[in-house]
Simulated assay, not measured.
Amino acid sequence: MAKISYAQYLELLMDPDTPDEVIAAFSTFAPGIGAFDPTLLPDPDRVAMTRDQIEAESGMKIGNGLARWRRNQAFRRALRSGDTRQVLVAEGDSWFQFPIFLREVIGHLSDPYLVWCASAAGDTARNMVYGQPRFGEAEYLIELNRQRDRVRAFLFSAAGNDIIGEDAEAGDGTPVLRKILTNPGTGTTDPAAYVHDHEVAARLAFLEQAYGKVIGDIRAHPRFATLPILIHGYDVPFPWPWGDKDRRNPRWAKKDQWLGSAFAPAGIEGPLRREILSHLIDRLYAMLDRVAASDPHVHVVDCRGTLPNPTDWADEIHGTSDGFAAVADRFHATLTRVLAN
């Protein structure tokens, strides 16, 4: 592939009509901090840059902001053109907004719907719900009000980074998952025996409170008293390595970035790792079901079983583009049902 100039690379980035796949072909990732917060960089093998441009690029953080800007620029253009697709507003994490290299859930839903996306890879429920908003109110609430005459549903994706990411409350740099895991040393195969139950219960209680606040804040606006709200609890991932033929080798993270590196210190190996994750995911869905039981217009999209094979995963926690298509199909089926009422 012939090199392009740095100026041409920037033109690609700033044109919302440039397909993500084209940008990905000329880009690479610098891994981010925390659960997932990468920096997109021009690939020096494919983009010709001077030394000054290389130094300037190293000081720029292009990732979540760029991906969101491109997606929402396309949304604005579509509205101005009179696009009649149903409008959705979304807030969430990397299952809703993955910078450039994967087509995630919102990427696929952006075909049948017009989606304004306030999501960011690596974001946590703690930050989305209790962080200091830039404009005095949560961004998704601002956009819901802006689209109040058009919006048909709100989609929310949060919890994963609160568990696999660093413990923000403790501030000690330790991933929460490491604090959850334990090894009873008895050889039991019961996955529940390998987690600190009180720790899991406390984390889920916080998440339940956060979800309740999101729903309550939306319902506080009379226009949104019955607005459909869709939530989900992910699918059960495959910690790396999953057998001798695990071919996952993401450009944006270490192979065991989130899961394998948490299980190893606890001495937990093999299929038991995934059984423990299945136990945790089931408990997350049980919490979400309780949240939904309090409001008939909150709908849990059960994504379990959408990514049943290691080849459906691009890394330990993200589906491939095709894998995410299966997840998006579950959302689309739920939207089709609830929007028909």
Rank of each mutant, 00 (worst) to 15 (best):
R178K: 14
I164P: 06
E166F: 03
D172K: 14
A159D: 00
A153G: 07
P175V: 07
F135H: 14
R148I: 01
T174S: 15
A158W: 00
I142M: 15
N161W: 07
A168C: 03
E169S: 08
Q147A: 07
G165W: 04
D172G: 13
N145A: 12
A159C: 07
R148C: 05
E143W: 12
D149V: 04
N145K: 11
I142E: 15
E139D: 15
R148G: 03
E143A: 11
Y140Q: 08
I142W: 08
F135I: 06
E143M: 15
R152K: 13
G165A: 14
L144V: 08
N161M: 03
G173C: 12
I164G: 01
R150F: 03
Q147N: 13
R178A: 15
E166V: 15
N145F: 04
R146K: 13
L141P: 03
K179I: 12
A153W: 01
V176R: 04
N161C: 08
E143D: 15
V176G: 06
A138I: 02
T174Y: 06
P175R: 11
E143V: 10
V176A: 03
N161E: 03
D167L: 11
R146M: 06
D149Y: 01
T174K: 13
T174I: 15
D149R: 01
L141S: 05
A153P: 00
V151W: 00
S157R: 02
V176I: 15
G136C: 11
R178I: 13
N161Y: 06
D162F: 00
F154Q: 07
T174W: 09
G165N: 12
D167G: 07
A168K: 09
D172H: 12
A168F: 03
A138L: 07
L177Q: 14
A138D: 12
L144E: 04
G173D: 14
G165K: 08
E166G: 09
G171L: 10
G171A: 11
G160T: 11
A138M: 10
G136N: 10
G160N: 05
G160D: 00
E166P: 04
L177G: 05
L141V: 10
G136F: 08
R146C: 06
F156V: 12
R150A: 03
R148W: 04
L141K: 04
R152Y: 04
F156I: 14
I164W: 05
R178F: 10
F135G: 05
L155N: 06
Q147T: 03
A153Y: 04
I163P: 01
A159W: 08
L155P: 00
E143I: 10
L155F: 06
F156G: 03
A159H: 06
G160M: 12
E139C: 07
F135E: 10
D172R: 14
K179T: 11
R152H: 02
I163V: 15
L177T: 14
I142P: 03
N145C: 06
